[in-house]
């Protein structure tokens, strides 16, 4: 089943001059068409200003198309009657952990979504318990968000989305402001949710290492969808990625360079283990 369908999505921003009048338009999204399968883990890569965040906001009806159509399940995002269904189905986690936590106590923040949806109190308690367990934050439920680390705050934000029982979670650079430990925590959590709960994940990022384990990678540049494939396929096109000002993971780059020098290595090596195996295989072949 297709969870998300974009048909020729266009989005324009108006540009303003110094007097505050409209001076022109810039196209943030230009004819983007893509379909995303239920339960998949899709990473969206792109340099700053490539339109990836704008696209994310379209998936939650925070922005509406200037052209084309966006469907979340069977709902058109322009259909106001289903606005709350769409926002409940496609939960969103933002970049800055501080600016998306509303309540002064962890458990009350997780409850914010269900409260808005009008879920009965007892059910809210159940959902809060479950969601905090799923992200491994149950021990912190009565803490103030100000006492948590960035990674923990981001997991609370994910729990807040989970409590709304979404089918899709869109994460807009959730790790950009975190330290390496926090980044690992968050990425592990979303992989678990994808694997164990069957949640469709859209991870927007510019960290290559986070993309390696995705089912599918979309590369955006200048508002257009440029590449679409598995991480292996995408990273074996290292030259093309460079054109979009993106780097491949370090091992992939190293493998690619070695290959240019005439060492027979397979395309699209993504992890250090894979690289080591490939090198060993090459050594054995030489003997």
């Amino acid at each position: 089943m297709k969870m998300i369908r974009l048909f020729h999505l266009m989005h324009k921003f108006e540009e303003y001059n110094e007097e505050g009048n409209v001076s022109g338009e810039s196209t943030a999204l230009d004819d983007v068409s893509v379909e995303i399968e239920k339960g998949s883990f899709v990473a969206v890569l792109g340099h700053n200003g490539s339109g990836k965040s704008t696209m994310a906001k379209h998936l939650n009806s925070l922005l509406l198309p200037d052209g084309g159509t966006v469907f979340i399940k069977e709902y058109d995002t322009r259909d106001e009657a289903h606005l709350w269904d769409i926002r409940q189905t496609a939960g969103m986690v933002f970049q800055n952990p501080d600016n998306q936590i509303i309540a002064n106590v962890v458990e009350e923040d997780v409850a914010f979504g269900p409260e808005n949806m009008g879920v009965p109190s007892q059910e809210i308690w159940k959902r809060v318990d479950e969601s905090l367990k799923k992200v491994g934050m149950a021990a912190y439920r009565t803490k103030s968000p100000n006492q948590l680390s960035g990674g923990q705050k981001q997991r609370v934000a994910i729990a807040g989305v989970m409590a709304m029982k979404p089918e899709i979670i869109i994460l807009d650079e959730p790790t950009a402001m975190l330290d390496p430990v926090g980044r690992m925590e968050v990425i592990r959590t979303i992989h678990e949710l994808n694997r164990l709960e069957g949640i469709t994940v859209i991870l927007i990022t510019h960290y290559m290492e986070e993309v390696v384990d995705a089912d599918r990678v979309l590369v955006m540049d200048g508002g257009k969808l440029m590449m679409d494939g598995t991480p292996k396929e995408i990273f074996s096109r290292a030259q093309e990625l460079k054109k979009y000002r993106l780097d491949v993971p370090q091992v992939t780059e190293l493998a690619w360079e070695l290959k240019q020098e005439g060492i027979e290595l397979p395309d699209g090596i993504l992890t250090i283990e894979e690289f080591a195996d490939a090198l060993c295989a090459y050594r054995d072949a030489l003997k």
Partner: peptide, 26 residues
Amino acid sequence: RRAADLALAMEARCYHGDANRTKMKP
């Protein structure tokens, strides 16, 4: 800037005033 971010995050979590709102701890 924080206020704008927060408003966006609240909207994304279905906030629409107190119409049909329930409470975790009534």
